[in-house]
Each structure stands twice: as C-alpha cells, then as structure tokens.
C-alpha cells in the first residue's frame, strides 16, 4: 500500500529513532505507536481524549495521542514512556518515584500519568499557570508547584484504582 489519496508517507522520530511509514490517514498516533511500532506503553483507555492514558510528549509537550492523526505529525519528535529515560538503563526519576510511592495499582494509567507529569513539570517551569494558580502570580515566571497545583495539573489523567495521593507524592518527590 503506497501513497494514494488515503495514505501518506510520514516520518516521525520516536524516542530518538526515525521511523518512516506509509500511514492510513485515519491512523492516530496512539494506534501507530501500539500497532505499527509495538510500543504499547501508551494505553487506550477511552480513545476520545477523556482519560489521559495515552499521554505522550510531542515536541516536548504532553498530548493525548488518541486524538492526533499521525500524518499531521510528520517531522515531529515523539517521546513515549519507553523512551522517557533516554538511552540509559536507569529509570527516569518519575518512574523511580512512582515505584517508591506505590503510585499505581493496575498500572494501566501509569505510563500516561508519568508522561503527563513530565510534561506538566516543564510547563510549570516555563511559567504556564493553571486553574488554581493565584492570578496575582507574576506572569512569565516559573510557577511554584504545591499539592493543589499538582492535583489540578494532573487532572487530565484518570486513575480508577485511586492512586491519586501517592501519584501526587511521587511527583512532588521529583519537583526540583
């Protein structure tokens, strides 16, 4: 199946490695990762942007991979849970903190929670406010993250096992 009006050649860098595929335009990033690249760390919890289990980083920003057509991401840099710690054998500090805090049970939301936390920490450092940020906080400066901030900013990641308090602790463990 080559390029036709419903397929296009698309190149993505996934966890540092380039992948060129002819994709069905309907293929979303989540299914490309899971079905084409066998990177099943990103999970399908709802397929509609309502649960966060599919969260990955695209060009460093956290997104719901179930709502992104892969063809539209040509040339983008994708980081999944499998590549979060880089090339090293050592887990990412968030992964270690999740283990130490017992911040999961069934584990299905966990890769999304961790990727979301990684993206969220970068957002706060870049001065992105949240719904609970005091409007008087100066704009353009890093936003300090207290528990309320962490909870609000991670609210796009559902956890049905109810590991929320442990997840918040794990994230706080790695706040610089």
């Amino acid at each position: 199946m080559g390029n036709d009006q419903h397929h296009s050649e698309t190149t993505l860098r996934v966890n540092g490695k380039p992948h060129t595929l002819t994709v069905d335009h309907r293929r979303v990033l989540l299914d490309l990762l899971r079905e084409d690249l066998d990177l099943t760390g990103a999970k399908k919890g709802c397929d509609h942007g309502q649960c966060g289990a599919c969260t990955v980083l695209v060009d460093g920003r956290r997104v719901n991979s179930c709502l992104l057509f892969a063809v539209a991401l040509d040339g983008c840099e994708i980081t999944t849970i499998e590549g979060l710690s880089g090339d090293g054998e050592e887990p990412h500090p968030l992964q270690r903190a999740f283990l130490e805090r017992d911040a999961f049970q069934c584990g299905y939301c966990t890769p999304g929670q961790i990727c979301s936390a990684a993206g969220m920490l970068a957002e706060a450092a870049a001065g992105h406010p949240s719904h609970v940020t005091d409007p008087a906080t100066p704009s353009g400066e890093p936003v300090p993250l207290d528990r309320e901030e962490v909870r609000e900013r991670l609210s796009g990641n559902l956890c049905r096992c109810g590991a929320y308090p442990r997840i918040a602790e794990a994230v706080e463990d790695v706040i610089p």
Partner: peptide, 9 residues
C-alpha cells in the same frame, strides 16, 4: 476547560 494535554493541542 479540558485538561493540560487537551489545551496543549
């Protein structure tokens, strides 16, 4: 509105 991930997209 929405979530951090959705607002990024």
């Amino acid at each position: 509105g929405a979530s951090g991930q959705l607002r990024n997209a």
